[in-house]
Design a binder for these strands. Structure first.
Lengths: 228, 228
DNA sequence: GTCTATATTACGATAGAC
DNA sequence: GTCTATCGTAATATAGAC
């Protein structure tokens, strides 16, 4: 639920540490994510990460080959989940509208539940070496193209009205990634509430909400009273 | 146009350098912005900035008191323009729909014309000290609230259909800030083309495009052929 | 698996000559 | 306005004991 990796679940045996202690790694990644978020990747030293984890800097090198490996693990918490958990929603059950709503709610909810990792994934990509950067971007493109194909299919089916589904996918992603920049717990909207409302707005954006439109120019509106 | 500040325009006289040479400052800020964008604020040293500007590191301190001052100037190129040039569009002439389209086109166009500064303004805020950070956020909130009030007025006038104008303002800003993350020259869409299309999509998002909606569920579409 | 100690390099910033 | 030289600090990473 938080940003721990899935633990392999074997090795509940004795013998202690054969798979290089994945749980400990995940703990340390979570600590590093938090600091990367607060001060930026280059703004945090290995000494600071170690201090926050209550060990010495040198001990980190027992678990990770480099500082960059800590960064890569942080980022994968986000991009792996999007492709593994979110993308299949689009192939699942329900109308196109229902599936899009479910995707957006899950996406925004994931931001709220993994704030440190999202912040890092959104801002520190360039700190990766070219090879590792490519690996991450493969995931991103898969998510983006999956959504584009889905919007094209939904338009062909008459549920959406996207003239350029590829561009609409970018616009939707731009919008639903936005809360990563500004949402924080304790604000006006809880993350579930925000997720639901953004899902409705995304539906409008792709032309899938026949009720969310004002009448023609110059007429009075016939919808409900202006909230706020 | 580019990310140079407005030059004071006095001192075309003799005497050379009384107003601390604003043009030279702007040059150096542009160089710094480019490097901050490429490698991140903490990933770039004063020596690297100096080398790119073809002077020595110590010489930078003749123009700027600190590295942070270079960062602040980079960020202001964006936030000052938004409030000074963009916000007045909403108070200008035309229908609400026309004004929103103009704002979005100008906003996306500004991203395309000031890529380095936008990148830095979007990602390196946290590197500012708390006092300077507050100054920048005053600009940001003014832009955001200005758009929210405008959407509320446009809804009351019957041109938009925003149930929660404050949230719609965030959604629109999230969307139109998005190209800062992915647009680059030479891609599928020129920045003007992108700006026009995002303006149309923003209109949908606020319920201001009566033609951009698919019919009810289960029916065949009656709009133009599915592009691609 | 964590420690102490350290090698090496780079950092932001300053002093003072020209 | 730019230079050379340098101060003091902190960076990533390694060696080797326990």
């Amino acid at each position: 639920m938080t940003q721990a990796q899935a633990t392999p679940a074997r090795a509940t045996r004795a013998q202690a540490s054969r798979p290089r202690n994945a749980a400990r790694r995940a703990e340390l990644v979570a600590v590093a994510s938090r600091l990367f978020r607060e001060r930026g990747y280059h703004g945090v030293g290995m000494r600071a990460i170690a201090e926050a984890a209550d060990i010495q800097a040198a001990s980190l090198y027992h678990h990770f080959a480099s500082k960059e490996e800590l960064l890569l693990e942080s980022i994968y918490v986000v991009d792996r989940d999007l492709v593994v958990d979110q993308l299949p929603i689009l192939e699942g059950e329900g109308t196109y509208r229902e599936r899009l709503e479910r995707l957006v709610r899950g996406h925004v909810g994931h931001i709220g539940a993994n704030r440190d990792a999202w912040w890092v994934a959104g801002r520190e990509l360039r700190a990766l070496s070219p090879g590792k950067l490519d690996e991450v971007q493969v995931y991103r493109r898969r998510y983006q193209h999956g959504l584009g194909d889905f919007l094209a299919a939904g338009t062909a089916a008459g549920e959406f009205a996207c003239e350029d589904p590829r561009l609409s996918a970018l616009a939707v992603l731009d919008m639903i990634n936005g809360p990563n920049e500004w949402w924080e717990p304790g604000g006006r909207l809880a993350i579930d509430e925000l997720a639901t409302r953004y899902a409705a707005l995304a539906l409008r954006l792709v032309g899938g909400d026949p009720e969310g439109t004002a009448p023609g120019p110059g007429q009075a509106r016939k919808r409900r009273s202006s909230a706020r």
